[in-house]
């Protein structure tokens, strides 16, 4: 998902306190920043919320790439609003992470030097306008699958950030579906572009949910703590079941010859993505990893004089005011 393969930190706390903490979570209580919490809970959450925030921020790059080249003024305004929302999502989440005792600069630094990750999906390129439609439809669609249950997560600030985000997210998916529908219903060339976008983005979208449950070793503790609400395969299945009819409506074909409805299970059977590709992208070898990190580093470095200048101005103004009093 936006947070993939989050390793749960082991916890070495007083067993009595741990049991009381778990009881609060089991009772559906929210944990707030000043409440006692196990060190492992705090560290795992910083990593998960941080990775989620970084994904929102880096996720602006593939879409921002098309703002100036949107086909109409209306599409441009819509895409701009969507990308601006993603910046907001990143900010809500950074603030939630900061309540756990990490500073904004620390967490930014960890993204910039590669110690923290963002979702694998944003290491794939957006080659043309059809990709922008497909991203909204599939990538935001997959994100929603994960974010909706996270509204009930045990950590208060994270839960509240998720509630805000979910309110904005369905606009994202709808505008994407609307854009790709226009192309699927357009000229044969446009329809071909829509199909091509689906072909390229289908498996990377399935990868967003993280490795298969049988290879995903860190889930149990996170699920007990309610910072992970469903298993990777559960969410992936839900996404496939929801997306297949949407593709059918568009007259597009999911690039999976083995995809078929399984009457007995009441779900679609589908082919897993190539996990070796996923691990390779996570390691830094996807088509855009280098570009994405370079763009974030450049933005941070280029913005330094603005951050420093505004702070210096604010301090000067405050000092002047103080002297006048």
């Amino acid at each position: 998902m936006y947070a993939q393969m989050i390793k749960s930190e082991a916890t070495q706390d007083d067993p009595e306190k741990l049991a009381a903490f778990q009881a609060r979570i089991d009772a559906g209580e929210k944990i707030e920043p000043k409440d006692w919490m196990p060190e492992g809970y705090r560290k795992t959450l910083i990593r998960q919320i941080g990775q989620h925030a970084h994904s929102e921020i880096v996720g602006q790059l593939p879409e921002g790439n098309w703002i100036t080249r949107a086909p109409t003024l209306e599409r441009k305004a819509i895409l701009l609003a969507k990308v601006q929302d993603e910046a907001g999502h990143g900010l809500y989440l950074y603030c939630a992470a900061e309540t756990l005792g990490v500073s904004r600069d620390e967490i930014t630094e960890m993204l910039l030097d590669g110690r923290m990750k963002y979702s694998s999906i944003f290491n794939y390129p957006t080659l043309n306008w059809a990709d922008i439609g497909a991203v909204g439809w599939l990538v935001d669609g997959a994100a929603i699958m994960n974010q909706v249950p996270l509204q009930r997560t045990s950590f208060g600030p994270y839960s509240r950030a998720m509630i805000r985000i979910c309110k904005e997210e369905s606009f994202h998916q709808r505008q994407g579906y609307d854009a790709i529908r226009k192309m699927a219903e357009g000229t044969p060339e446009q329809k071909k572009m829509a199909q091509d976008a689906l072909n390229r983005l289908w498996y990377p979208s399935l990868m967003m949910f993280g490795p298969s449950d049988k290879d995903s070793v860190h889930s149990a503790q996170s699920m007990a703590w309610k910072i992970k609400m469903n298993t990777n395969d559960e969410l992936r299945q839900k996404f496939v079941d929801q997306t297949v009819p949407q593709a059918e409506y568009l007259g597009l074909t999911i690039p999976d010859p083995d995809l078929k409805w399984n009457e007995e299970r009441g779900h679609y059977d589908y082919t897993d993505p190539d996990w070796s590709e996923f691990f390779d992208v996570i390691k830094g070898n996807g088509p855009c990893n280098v570009d994405r990190l370079a763009a974030r580093n450049k933005a941070w470095d280029d913005g330094a004089w603005v951050r420093d200048g505004l702070l210096a101005h604010a301090k000067k103004k405050a000092a002047r005011q103080h002297a006048a009093e």
């Binding site: 900010l91 950030a161 805000r164 951050r307 101005h313 604010a314 103004k317 405050a318």
Partner: peptide, 19 residues
């Protein structure tokens, strides 16, 4: 509703409006 970083109160209000 949440928090954000800003150099001073005036910018905090402007940023809050956007965020």
């Amino acid at each position: 509703v949440g928090s954000l970083h800003a150099p001073d109160a005036e910018m905090a209000i402007k940023n809050a409006r956007d965020v």
